[in-house]
Design a protein around this nucleic acid. Structure first.
Lengths: 192, 192
DNA sequence: AAAAACTATTGACAAATGTCAACGTTTTTA
DNA sequence: TAAAAACGTTGACATTTGTCAATAGTTTTT
């Protein structure tokens, strides 16, 4: 829904109503049902995508068929594959709805034009990117410095609402361990 | 040296000579000898730092005294701790010169002012940030989906000049494995 | 030139993690 | 509502990785 996006923007930056309306006029509404895909491996990603409701995940599948989850995207978050977007190369990732979702799509060219036309919007976008970068850095630091148990505890601590929303094996995939190992880590911790 | 920075900017964006000079006028030159620190854990990081010559690493030290390397920064790269910078919180990281280095420091407020005043400069900064984000995402994907051996091969493939410039145990630290394991991975691979 | 520090390797062993299979339960689908 | 799929757990076992210690070669410092 457009209202969700409107509220999202207004929370971040105070922008003239008309500008916001113009931005909204470029949004393409896409509805996804659970297990449908927003992006499939091999396709080129051409949008900026705002999740106005529902829940998505982005993941790759390796030679052995194992899935590796790069991100979860609940409502009020963005998703997509920026590498595919900027290089116009086939994506390594799948983006799939874990719950029925409503997405606002902005074509790359439209989005870039809007960023140029509305500096406030551009600033907001860059701020989001900046925060995403900080989040990435933290995830990297966890991955090279923490034990599996610490990675799990950290995840639950930082993303409690996501931890409650996805099956356990997806948390395992996100932090880079097998589902069995996570199960054992949890049962060990319970005994203490 | 200022010349290096000038060339760096001119390679990325065509900016009026005067603007560039003004930007340069805010640079603080800092020389570091091997093993000196640009930032020490616990201090708040207050700059944007451009490496005009030399070579730095950023790392944390855990409870057991093990170092975990977050990044390497050769000449023509930026370094610092953005999380500490934006939140004004004590840094978890140390930034240390691995080779004698010359750094250009821009105080946070100066740098932000320059970004506001010179849109081209601002764009350049945001582009760099964007690329850093893509790099981070790739590192995350490696860390959750590759074996240790693959992580090492990947590192050498992507950063050959860094791989040749640092001791092996630092590569191990960067990819999140012990130095002994890396040594064994390499000797195994040699047999094949 | 000698001493100290750093680096990479290797062995022995312990600990952590992955793999495969089986099972019962819960959730989803038809 | 019955069948199928998904989920989490557990056991047995193999594999990977970490830890500690010793060693030899190299580089740096004094």
């Amino acid at each position: 829904m457009l209202e969700v996006f409107k509220k999202y923007i207004n929370d971040k930056v105070s922008m003239p109503e008309d500008d916001l309306s113009e931005i909204l006029s470029y949004a393409i509404l896409k509805k996804l049902r659970r297990r449908q895909f927003l992006l499939q491996e091999g396709d080129v990603w051409r949008y900026n995508a705002f999740v106005s409701s529902g829940f998505l995940r982005k993941y790759s599948v390796d030679d052995k068929g194992t899935e590796h989850i790069m991100s979860f995207s609940p409502e009020n978050y963005w998703t997509g594959d920026r590498e595919s977007l900027v290089n116009e190369t086939p994506s390594k990732f799948n983006i799939e709805a874990l719950e029925n979702a409503e997405i606002l799509l902005f074509k790359k060219d439209d989005f870039d034009m809007l960023c140029k036309k509305f500096p406030l919007f551009n600033n907001m976008v860059n701020n989001i990117l900046h925060r995403s970068f900080l989040t990435s850095q933290n995830r990297i630091h966890s991955s090279i410095s923490l034990t599996s148990e610490e990675k799990y505890n950290n995840f639950v601590l930082k993303f409690p609402s996501i931890a409650n929303r996805v099956p356990q094996h997806m948390i395992a995939s996100y932090i880079g361990i097998s589902p069995e190992t996570l199960s054992r880590i949890r049962s060990q911790a319970n005994k203490r």
